[in-house]
């Protein structure tokens, strides 16, 4: 059987959704309560890594393919840069070009919310990628070792 036992798999399926929702909450409310894009992104990445540990990498990659993770990784970083550039239209790099809104509302404080979301996408996908790279690398090098042994 690929992955861990049935107990672990069932609990994982049950918990993963909650972890992701909590991560999204940490990201979206980063400008109102403690937290932010980085912490939230790591939590979301942890959910995917949990799925990968419990079910094996094929199931995790079916939820988030490697190519998509690469696109989100670069795209998140690029989005951060572009939001910074957007500030040039009102004066300077990283100047707040969005409306400030009303304090304590979800849609407030201008560019901070979009920046948090961009960081969260970037952090979650890149941590997922590095974990999957470690998982895949082991298999390949192990197989290569056996091949060398046989040759």
């Amino acid at each position: 059987m690929i992955g861990m036992t049935l107990i672990v798999k069932t609990i994982t399926d049950f918990v993963v959704g909650f972890i992701i929702v909590f991560g999204v909450y940490i990201v979206l409310y980063g400008h109102l309560t403690p937290g932010g894009g980085f912490a939230g992104g790591v939590i979301i990445a942890c959910a995917f890594i949990l799925a990968m540990l419990a079910h094996g990498k094929d199931v995790a990659f079916s939820k988030l393919p490697e190519k998509a993770a690469h696109i989100i990784d670069s795209g998140g970083a690029l989005a951060f840069l572009l939001i910074g550039w957007f500030g040039v239209t009102v004066g300077a790099f990283f100047m707040n070009a969005f409306g400030r809104g009303e304090v304590f509302r979800l849609l407030s404080s201008g560019m901070i919310l979009p920046l948090n979301i961009a960081i969260a996408f970037k952090v979650s996908s890149s941590l997922f990628l590095v974990f999957s790279a470690l998982a895949i690398f082991r298999r390949r090098s192990f197989r290569a070792m056996i091949e060398d042994e046989l040759a």
Binding site: F80, G110, K122
Partner: peptide
């Protein structure tokens, strides 16, 4: 900044450029 969390206000508004650098370090 109209941001209720002062830490976020500092890292993503006053010093957002540093945070871009941090994101680049991770990248």
């Amino acid at each position: 900044t109209y941001c209720a969390n002062i830490v976020t206000a500092v890292i993503l508004d006053f010093r957002a450029y540093d945070t871009m650098g941090e994101a680049s370090v991770l990248f």
